[in-house]
Amino acid sequence: MPTGWVTDVPGLTRNQQLHALGNGVVPAQAIAALHTLLPAYFLPALPGEEAAA
């Protein structure tokens, strides 16, 4: 969202701003988690380590 999309609305309290944002950041967080976790999951195990299930 552009800067100020919620925070520059006159009269909104911080709680109202957070409520307006809702789950808008969840998809971006999920993508970041997948980019972090998936490469580790698909890398082959080193000798002496167990492979990912």
Rank of each mutant, 00 (worst) to 15 (best):
G11E: 03
D8K: 06
G22H: 12
W5I: 00
A32P: 07
G22T: 15
L37F: 05
L12F: 04
L18F: 11
E50Y: 08
T13H: 06
A30W: 08
A45W: 11
I31G: 03
V9G: 02
Q29S: 10
Q17S: 01
M1G: 10
T36P: 01
L18C: 00
V6A: 12
P47I: 02
L46W: 01
P10E: 06
A51L: 03
R14F: 09
L38N: 06
A51T: 06
G4F: 02
A51Y: 06
I31V: 13
A45Q: 08
T36A: 07
V26N: 03
L38H: 09
I31D: 10
D8W: 00
T7R: 06
A33D: 14
L18T: 09
Y41S: 03
P2I: 05
G22P: 14
A52F: 04
A51K: 05
T36V: 05
Q17G: 00
I31Y: 07
P44G: 01
V26F: 08
A40V: 02
Q29E: 15
G4R: 00
Q17F: 03
L46Q: 03
A30S: 10
L21C: 14
P44W: 03
E50G: 07
G11W: 07
T3V: 15
H35E: 13
A28I: 05
A32H: 08
L43S: 15
V9K: 08
G24Y: 12
E49K: 14
A51C: 03
A33P: 05
A30F: 10
N15I: 06
L38Y: 12
V6D: 06
V9N: 00
N23Y: 09
L43R: 15
P39N: 05
T3Q: 15
P10Y: 05
G48D: 10
F42Q: 10
Q16H: 12
L43W: 11
T7Q: 10
G24C: 13
T13P: 08
L38R: 06
L12V: 01
A30Y: 13
A53W: 14
H19V: 14
L37V: 08
F42M: 09
R14I: 10
E50D: 10
Q29A: 15
N23L: 13
H35W: 12
M1I: 11
D8S: 10
L12W: 07
H35T: 12
L46A: 06
G4P: 04
L37G: 01
V6Q: 01
I31F: 06
V26L: 08
A45S: 14
A51E: 09
A52G: 04
A33Y: 11
A28C: 05
L43E: 14
I31L: 13
G4M: 01
H35G: 09
T3C: 13
T13R: 02
A30R: 15
V25T: 14
W5F: 11
P39R: 00
A51I: 05
G4N: 00
T36D: 11
G22Y: 12
P47Y: 00
P44M: 00
I31S: 10
E49L: 14
N15A: 05
Q29P: 09
P2T: 05
A32N: 09
W5Y: 13
A30K: 13
G48W: 10
A20M: 11
L38S: 07
A52H: 08
